[in-house]
Structure formats: C-alpha cells, structure tokens
C-alpha cells in the first residue's frame, strides 16, 4: 500500500545533486580582447580523453571561425578560437561531450 504520499515523496538521504565536493578539473572558457572589437576565446582544461584536434575541427566548422591548439607548459593544451564563442563552446561541451555544466566556468565580461 503506497498511499502515504507525503512520506514517499522525499528521501532526505538521496543525492541532492549539489555535492559539496567541488570538482577540481574545471574547464575554463575565457575571452580576451584583441585590437578593435575583435576577441579571442580560449578553452582550457578539456579532459585528456578527448582528442582536441578533432574537437577543434568540429568547432571551427560549426562556429565558422578559425582556431588552433596552443601548448602551454603548465596548463596543457588550450584551444583558441577567434571571436567570442564562449556560450557556443559551453553549449557544445555540455550537449556533445556530455560534460557536466558545473565543471565549466565562463570567464570574462
């Protein structure tokens, strides 16, 4: 008899989703101003199991912009894209690569 509705509705010990443990492997999406009204988007910290080259190829085609991969001594490989692609990139990462949204941090104005 599952009729006591207000008891079955809420499990206080269930995972609430907002776990206290903060992910340390954030993906940072930043924007930098170039000359004039031109900008540059950098995507830092994409997990190693993804092939950056392939991602970049798709991104370039989808956003109709140029881009490249820069190797940094401390931060590993970083994707650079021309123009302000921050929102589009985060959308791509969440929908196509199934990365959790809380791991993605968008910086800049």
């Amino acid at each position: 008899m599952s009729t006591i509705q207000n008891l079955t509705a809420f499990d206080p010990f269930a995972d609430t989703g907002d776990s206290e443990a903060q992910p340390t492997n954030y993906i940072h999406i930043r924007i930098q101003q170039r000359n004039g009204r031109k900008t540059l988007t950098t995507v830092q910290g994409v997990p190693n199991e993804y092939d950056l080259k392939k991602i970049l190829k798709v991104l370039k085609k989808d956003f109709a912009c140029n881009g490249n991969i820069v190797k940094d001594d401390e931060l590993g490989e970083v994707i650079q894209l021309q123009g302000d692609q921050r929102v589009k990139v985060s959308e791509f990462l969440t929908t196509q690569l199934q990365l959790p949204k809380k791991n993605i941090k968008i910086h800049g104005f």
Binding site: E49, D51, V58
Partner: peptide, 22 residues
Amino acid sequence: MSDLGFDPSLKKKKKSKKTDES
C-alpha cells in the same frame, strides 16, 4: 595526442543533431 576514448562518431552526431539543437 591519442584517440583514447574519443568517439569517432562525434562529428557525424553533431551534424545530424545540429538542426534541432541549435
């Protein structure tokens, strides 16, 4: 640069999904 775990079908998926997800 390894292909570890990267889904080769990714690109195709993107294309097909693109219209409805945009």
